[in-house]
Amino acid sequence: MILEIRELTKSFGGLKAVEEVSFKVMPGIILSVIGPNGAGKTTLFNCLTGALLPTKGKIFFEDKDITGKRPYEITEAGIARTFQNIRIFGKMSVLENVMIGQHSRSREGFVGAVLRTNGFKKEESEIKAKAYEFLEFTGIEEYAETRAENLPYGYQRRLEIARALATEPKLILLDEPAAGMNPQESIELMTLINKIREWGKTVIVIEHDMKVVMGISDKIVVLDHGVKIAEGTPKEIQSNTDVIEAYLGKGFEF
């Protein structure tokens, strides 16, 4: 198991945004989390990455308890994320954005930086070289010098993925990576997510587009009003009457 969630609950005042959710994730798979608006998907991600403190429950990453750790510690441990509403560093170049992703994988401090030691220069050029690799991997290397906020929307989402990959995670969480993309871009994104998996990473993705979800997932978890109402392969989910009724409404077909 790369990730195990046990009876996770997050309440905001009286509202239980996530309630008693448990599931396990095998390494190397693509798992989709689906559910209607306000189902608690993003809240789940925020708890997993330390952005929110769970009200109850435990999270284990590679059998280690990571509940209540700070976000940077969780990134260091090997979980990366992207945000539903893009949060790139707009005033910096695309390349610099990705270089920042390398932060926890580099060491040099004040002395190296001031004296420009050989160790420092070597590390800097490694950071840069790796950053270019991630830009190539996500297909935006030609924009390396562009100011990030000037990137077209679809590429900003790719940049977020590149930046998350630059933290060298084992598990990557993508929050609606296809939101606002046209069908063509969505298809390219599916290819990219598959590529990430083939590279040996585990992927958890929140997605509304059922074509994308059914096309790439090994496993699907369905949330509704904070509660997990189903879990299974795409086939199982498609024929699950609970899901169809609760989530998609009667008479819906995949």
Binding site: T49, G50, A51, R70, P71, Y72, T75, E76, A80, R81, F83, R87, I88, F89, G90, K91, M92, E96, M99, I100, G101, H103, S104, R105, R163, A164, T167
Partner: peptide, 19 residues
Amino acid sequence: RAWLALKDDEMAAEAMGIN
């Protein structure tokens, strides 16, 4: 770079592994 990231967006900076 960590300082600039912090200035731009604290939450994203943390997610990049910056304490």
